[in-house]
Design a protein around this nucleic acid. Structure first.
Lengths: 199, 199
DNA sequence: CGATTTAGGTTAACACCGTTAACAAACATA
DNA sequence: TATGTTTGTTAACGGTGTTAACCTAAATCG
């Protein structure tokens, strides 16, 4: 059945070309100017073809959201593996989170920009749970090591993530989406304070 | 010259009705569905009338942004006035920041949502500087009181604001823009940790 | 092999959006 | 009374997401 295979392959290639065309546009012109019509133009097919592969524009954004969460989870896991103690792990994970958000700021904007569709998917999909699980488990280990089991680990996780997100967002807001030298100093200062509060 | 006055008054009423119509729409349907055409329909004038009062749609959003920053600055100042020591002030200001963001979540989304025009205005206008000045000056006083003058007050301010913004944003992201009981506990926990780091 | 169904693709339209040029009418001024 | 300005209108341009109707080429079946 080589024919069916060829068709399937073609369909997957088309789907893939939609995503890469969309991603190229986002990288060069931002989420704002991403449009179905421009994608259709780029892949040299007519507009409705895109709706054979994605239900609507939001579904395309959702696809990139998932990619973003997976990539972030991957980066966090890689960072954690480079250290032994939970406290050190939390620090390098914070660095990895920071680096991810600026090296892939388009992902970050889509994943965490307020008022975008990603808000509604946050508690529905597995990708984000995997990411938060990495943080949560490391926090748990840190609390065990520091002989502080009565602390609410979920509260501490919430604080940890909030500090990371806040630092990145404020940096993006008042420095035009570019990290500066001082930014990472603030991150390390905040992390030092947070780790103290775990003991 | 009562005629000129009447005209001016009419013009101001029109401008004001544009803003209130827009605000009503935002409250009931969100920023996403705010449109010039619907505003024109609501005030029962034709579309170009709106362009006599605002250069474009972004100018209307900018107007609301300014309002938001002013209101937030006002709330922070009121909160600060209720306490004597800088440390207590930082805590009640944090509460006020939290309350503002959920009591006026439409303002907060406009002011701090990533990828919206407010990004570009952040360093240009005075409203936001007034707001940050309140935070900065209180941080400075806190560092003086704690006899810790060698600390970088701007770094500490950056950390303070980041924690607040991060807590609010994460709460909005994973709890559908509604505060819960636990949220404020996390805030107080994080603030306790931050204040420790000032000493 | 020839007829028929099906899948992939296209054209053209609908209903919106922000923005603006061209024009009309009401008004204040000279 | 005539002129010019202000204030509002209609209608259009170019853009958006989305979908119904159709067309054609390929695969399946009698």
């Amino acid at each position: 059945m080589g024919i069916a295979e060829r068709k399937t392959r073609h369909k997957e290639e088309l789907r893939s070309s939609i995503l890469t065309a969309a991603w190229d546009m986002v990288l060069s012109e931002g989420w704002q100017s991403l449009s179905i019509r421009k994608i259709a133009d780029a892949i040299e097919y007519s507009i409705p073809v895109i709706y054979n592969h994605f239900e609507n524009k939001e579904a395309i954004l959702l696809e990139f959201s998932k990619e973003g969460y997976q990539l972030l989870a991957c980066k966090l896991e890689q960072a954690r593996a480079t250290m032994q103690t939970p406290e050190e792990q939390l620090k390098v994970m914070a660095d990895a989170y920071w680096d991810f958000s600026f090296e892939h700021k388009e992902y970050y904007q889509l994943m965490f920009g307020l008022g975008i569709p990603a808000c509604e998917m946050v508690n529905q999909h597995e990708e984000i749970k995997k990411m938060t699980h990495i943080m949560i488990s490391t926090i748990q280990q840190a609390l065990q090591v520091s002989a502080n089991p009565e602390a609410d680990f979920f509260l501490k996780f919430h604080t940890y993530w909030s500090i990371l997100h806040g630092l990145v967002s404020i940096q993006m807001i008042d420095n035009g989406q570019q990290p500066d030298r001082k930014g990472k100093l603030v991150l390390q200062d905040a992390m030092a304070g947070f780790c103290k509060s775990l003991v």
